[in-house]
Amino acid sequence: MATKTISLDEKAYERLKAHKREGESFSDVVKRLAGERSWSEVAGILSPDEAEALGETVKEGRSRSRARSDRLADELDAASDRDGSK
């Protein structure tokens, strides 16, 4: 794997070092901090009511997305039928 060298001032280095967990490389720390959070890192942030509301919103979004996908597939099929491409 290729590597890059970066420079950090002392304050930035100490802050990064403070986030370093046992067994982690500095690359691991940067990827963890700069990347998406895992569920274990965000567990407990929402109240049960907030979590339920969020879950409902996600379900509704998935349902709308599924309906939109089905509609577009139907429109594509209809267009293909009209063009004789099927």
Results as ranks from 00 to 15, higher is better:
residue 44 G to R: 04
residue 56 E to Q: 14
residue 1 M to N: 07
residue 33 L to R: 11
residue 63 S to H: 05
residue 37 R to M: 13
residue 17 K to P: 00
residue 26 F to E: 04
residue 48 P to H: 04
residue 29 V to R: 01
residue 57 T to F: 09
residue 64 R to G: 00
residue 38 S to R: 13
residue 14 E to K: 10
residue 63 S to A: 14
residue 18 A to P: 02
residue 3 T to L: 01
residue 23 G to C: 08
residue 32 R to Q: 11
residue 23 G to Q: 10
residue 54 L to C: 07
residue 20 K to W: 08
residue 55 G to C: 02
residue 62 R to F: 05
residue 38 S to E: 15
residue 23 G to H: 07
residue 36 E to W: 02
residue 19 H to S: 12
residue 45 I to V: 15
residue 37 R to C: 06
residue 16 L to D: 03
residue 58 V to T: 02
residue 9 D to A: 01
residue 10 E to L: 03
residue 60 E to L: 09
residue 58 V to A: 06
residue 12 A to T: 15
residue 41 E to M: 10
residue 45 I to P: 03
residue 24 E to K: 01
residue 42 V to P: 01
residue 36 E to K: 13
residue 10 E to R: 02
residue 14 E to V: 01
residue 3 T to G: 01
residue 10 E to S: 08
residue 8 L to P: 06
residue 55 G to D: 10
residue 43 A to S: 12
residue 62 R to Q: 11
residue 14 E to A: 09
residue 7 S to R: 12
residue 18 A to Y: 09
residue 32 R to I: 13
residue 44 G to N: 06
residue 17 K to R: 14
residue 11 K to A: 12
residue 63 S to C: 01
residue 36 E to L: 06
residue 36 E to Q: 12
residue 59 K to V: 06
residue 8 L to V: 15
residue 57 T to S: 08
residue 10 E to A: 07
